[in-house]
Amino acid sequence: MKIIITSNSGHDVLAISGEVDMDTSPELRTHLLEFIHKRTPLLLIDFREVSYIDSSGIATFVEGLKGMMVYGGKLKFVAIPEKIGEIFSFAKLDRVFEIYGSIEDALHR
């Protein structure tokens, strides 16, 4: 897993590539907790290059989401590949996370 942090129209974008699993999610967690610590109002997660996510990866995002909800922050997922989208929809995680097709969609809706 690789994480690149960039900015789009003044909003933080965390772009992940590779597998988000038991071994790699602690690194993701460190980044998310930093954003929470800074009370980032909107954090976009770019899933375009994510090849796999397991339950520990999802739990890490659940923790991030709960942490952001405390201060009214928003966590938005963008560009989820089809296979991962299937997991999200059968696990009804699309009811938990806000999911958008692209960064532009996420910023304007």
């Binding site: 967690r29 339950s55 999802i58 739990a59 890490t60 995002f61 659940v62 923790e63 991030g64 989401l65 709960k66 696990a91």
Partner: peptide, 8 residues
């Protein structure tokens, strides 16, 4: 639950 843990 701690650390975002959940159960399917």
């Amino acid at each position: 639950s701690p650390r975002g843990m959940f159960l399917t």
